[in-house]
């Protein structure tokens, strides 16, 4: 319990956490605003907009939010390695397994809380602009997608930071992966059909699309667990 309190104080006592969280909300609102502003008919009249689809576009499909969630995920170990405080942490809590999982839990809680707040504010904004039509996406599916999205980018950044012990790489890594998958899908999909299917973000999107069986879930889970396992082993084995 002390470790979770410690982690919470660590996260909340630096402005970066709050600024990044604030920008997640602003980034989502900005995309929601663009969505509502662009949705007009040929006479220039505003169209009735589906809220859940717009929220998904503002958060789950928004590369800005993606990077910011990754930034929250990278902070857990990134700041510790960057400023040497990992040695204070591991002196106070010598059991590295506990430290790893406490940081992971706190990172996921923060990422999910920020995603929840951003969703609530974006929804309120959309209601205020008259976008209250039911979308093609049900609320439970939207919530599920938001959770998976936040967990994915938080875990990717968290793991990459532990593995590389490099804070910027932990943030930029998931974005590079996203861009890689975006391009690889178009360039190599015909020649190497299996490759895009074996990548985590494509698997996540396929999973979101439904009707693809358990394979995308397994691919996604394998990436998440695999990266976390590598990070965990390296944290335990390497000098602090």
């Amino acid at each position: 319990m002390e470790l979770l309190t410690f982690e919470w104080r660590r996260a909340r006592s630096i402005r970066t956490t709050w600024i990044t969280s604030g920008f997640v909300v602003l980034g989502a609102l900005f995309f929601a605003f663009l969505g509502t502003a662009a949705a007009v008919d040929e006479n220039g009249q505003s169209l009735a907009l589906p809220t859940t689809d717009l929220i998904k576009a503002s958060l789950v499909d928004n590369p800005i939010v993606m990077v910011l969630i990754a930034s929250l995920g990278a902070m857990a170990f990134g700041h510790e390695y960057r400023y040497g405080t990992i040695r204070l942490t591991l002196t106070a809590f010598p059991r590295r397994t506990t430290v790893f999982f406490a940081k992971l839990v706190m990172t996921l809680l923060i990422a999910l809380a920020v995603a929840a707040v951003a969703t609530a504010i974006t929804y309120a904004f959309l209601l205020a602009t008259g976008a209250n039509e039911p979308g093609g996406l049900t609320w439970p599916r939207l919530v599920f997608q938001l959770v998976v999205f936040a967990v994915t980018f938080a875990v990717l950044a968290f793991s990459l930071t532990v593995i590389t012990r490099n804070h910027p790489l932990g943030i930029i890594g998931p974005l590079l992966l996203f861009l890689f998958e975006l391009t690889i899908g178009g360039l190599l999909a015909e020649r190497l059909e299996w490759l895009p299917k074996a990548l985590p973000l494509t698997a996540m999107q396929t999973w979101f699309g439904g009707d693809a069986g358990v394979r995308p879930i397994a691919v996604w889970a394998a990436w998440m667990v695999g990266l976390l396992a590598i990070g965990f082993v390296l944290l335990r084995r390497r000098d602090a």
Binding site: E2, F6, R9, R10, S13, I14, Y83, T85, L88, A92
Partner: peptide, 26 residues
């Protein structure tokens, strides 16, 4: 332990740093 005079986050106030470390030992 005190191993280095620079082991703290540059943007976390001195008091917040100590409050954070205090959580480790209640």
């Amino acid at each position: 332990a005190h191993l280095d005079a620079k082991f703290f986050h540059p943007n976390r106030t001195a008091r917040a740093h100590l409050r954070m470390m205090a959580a480790a030992s209640r």
